[in-house]
Design a binder for these strands. Structure first.
Lengths: 339, 339
DNA sequence: TTCAGGAGTGTTACCGTTCCCAAACGCGGC
DNA sequence: GCCGCGTTTGGGAACGGTAACACTCCTGAA
């Protein structure tokens, strides 16, 4: 075998180029005061030795790992996964590596443990994809020498900078679309009561109904998944006065569609349905789902920008502490005027 | 403000405990030769100073970062995202942090760049979630001092250790289920031709048909998404002899279901449909989808185990270089005997 | 001619660990 | 009482970078 590889270090490069290691350091850090000729000689030496700098050594002295930490929850779902993707993409171009620390539940303990784990690995900043108050609060309790940003959450007055979409506006968009089609009111299948995002969507829906003078049907907040949509859909299907349903996300909408179908109520002829998220295949539901599109990847990118700005100089406050992205209505085949 | 925090280092702990830094090091590394009383004194000092060791310094000298790298592709999809989740979970309990490097396409260049990026950050090993030959080949071209494992791919004789599911067996399961219901043959909507997993599913499907003496209909490999399922579904819907369709994944199946529905062909009464993957909401399709379940998280966990074993001692070859997980048929409402 | 100042380079210290080796200590056997 | 040996402890030297500072040139103004 003998796949000996005497990994080249800075001294080797320096020796080969006939300069001091400090000059090599200056070259890789693009320090201006290096003669062009010297620089080239060093670069050549680096090339021929296949040199790459030891980031651990650099981190040790600079206290910057050029690594960002992400705290994630249920990142198997499309939304969180896309945010992760967006963050990683932006981080890469900004010269950062991304490390992940997932939490199984959103209690204080696991979140703090995750922060701690990332901190030991000297991450320069943390983005939390876990939009519940418990998480942002835990973030606040984290050591203050580390920069944190939360993405996808809600809450106005959080002390932690946040990137979020305007859930209320999205819900209004959906509700107004249905009202404009001529529905007398719009029912809502809400997300879990303890998620701010679900609350904001409820608020937006309620606002739109009130503004139009429409009745506000009761809601029964449950879960984000298709099953809870199915269960609530069965209830709604039994009520002949229901002609329009706004679902807190696309998965719930999928369950509602199935319940309506099984009850023999045609969509969109008898009942219109709107979702939220615009998952990859929502356009292939039966019927293709009208929904509110969230640009998750954009959310991820924005959160990274926000984090980097805060890291650069927290006092500058270049961008506001809370960034809001506006969602967009995508009209497909699941909505129509009432008969 | 003045949130000064003179982070405690090993020397501080040593001083407080009245020992040398070396003894502190022995305590945190659980070296046996430390007197019980001394150990306790040191632990107490660590506690009171809120000491945590500087991993960069440790990495510098041990050349082990206790970080694992993951190369991912399209990790917004449920499958890859779940594998990532499974890997992270297992890595955490094994004491590793996970860093991710995503690639936008599977050419050699981006993959090698990803390897390089991870290597600079001194990861101890790499798991590639990107099951195409181009990737595993690139992995082989990577510097040999780093351990690599591929997950979710196919290929028997790869030089890179692999964890995969038995796609052929899964496809056979699906096909045999349909044949057992009484269908004369089974049509297949395949995945992209250049994915080994798609090829294996084709092979399994073909095997099952041949074994039963059934005709083997032609296939038109396309993509993994609902759209391509929809397009192919429209073609199949026009052919009245089609009574059973096996789809290469659940998303394709969703598209096929929509095409059949639009063509007025009832599922499962007129046509049976089977998917592959068992995505979270497949049970709420119209009708609920019979499918082949892949345990993605398990795949992730296994790949981590394999990697750790190889890192511990490549010669031992504790477990075989290629681990195969068996999928499972989940029967729901989209399959029935032909009329 | 002298001197200030900046560009280009080298010298040395230091970041916080772990590793290597030696020293101090305790203990049983001669 | 002394020696050999194993346990416990400490003192340096790495590890591979960056930061601070000093030193040489060279230029241009006084």
């Amino acid at each position: 075998m003998a796949s000996k590889k005497p990994v080249a270090v800075m001294r080797d490069v320096a020796k080969l180029a006939g300069v001091s290691h400090q000059t090599v350091s200056r070259v890789i850090n693009e320090h201006p005061n290096v003669r062009q000729e010297t620089r080239e000689r060093v670069l050549e030496a680096m090339e021929s030795l296949d040199y790459r700098r030891n980031l651990a050594a650099r981190t040790l002295v600079t206290r910057q790992s050029h690594t960002l930490g992400i705290i994630g929850f249920e990142t198997t779902l499309f939304g969180p996964a896309s945010m992760l993707y967006g963050i990683e993409d932006a981080a890469r171009t900004a010269g950062y590596l991304v490390s992940i620390a997932m939490v199984r539940n959103l209690d204080r303990r696991p979140v703090l443990e995750a922060v701690d784990r990332l901190r030991q690995h000297a991450v320069d900043g943390i983005i939390a994809i876990a939009p519940k108050p418990a998480v942002t609060n835990s973030l606040l309790a984290a050591p203050s020498d580390i920069y944190c940003v939360a993405v996808g959450g809600a809450g106005e007055a959080e002390a932690v900078p946040t990137v979020r979409i305007d859930n209320a506006a999205g819900a209004r968009l959906a509700t107004e679309h249905l009202l404009a089609l001529g529905h007398r009111t719009v029912h809502h299948v809400a997300g879990p009561a303890d998620w701010p995002e679900a609350q904001e969507r409820i608020a937006g829906w309620r606002d739109a109904l009130s503004a139009a003078g429409a009745a506000v049907p009761p809601i029964v907040p449950q879960s984000w998944n298709a099953e809870s949509g199915y269960l609530q859909g069965q209830r709604l299907a039994r009520d002949p006065s229901v002609t329009a349903v706004f679902c807190a996300n696309d998965r719930i909408a999928l369950g509602v569609l199935r319940a309506l179908h099984e009850a023999g109520r045609k969509v969109p002829e008898e009942v219109s349905v709107v979702g939220f998220d615009d998952m990859p295949d929502s356009g292939y539901f039966l019927p293709p789902l009208t929904t509110v599109r969230q640009d998750f990847a954009e959310l991820g990118r924005r959160s990274l920008t926000l984090l980097l700005e805060h890291m650069a100089g927290p006092d500058d406050a270049v961008s506001p502490a809370h960034v809001t992205v506006t969602p967009e209505l995508v009209v497909r085949g699941s909505t129509a005027p009432p008969r």
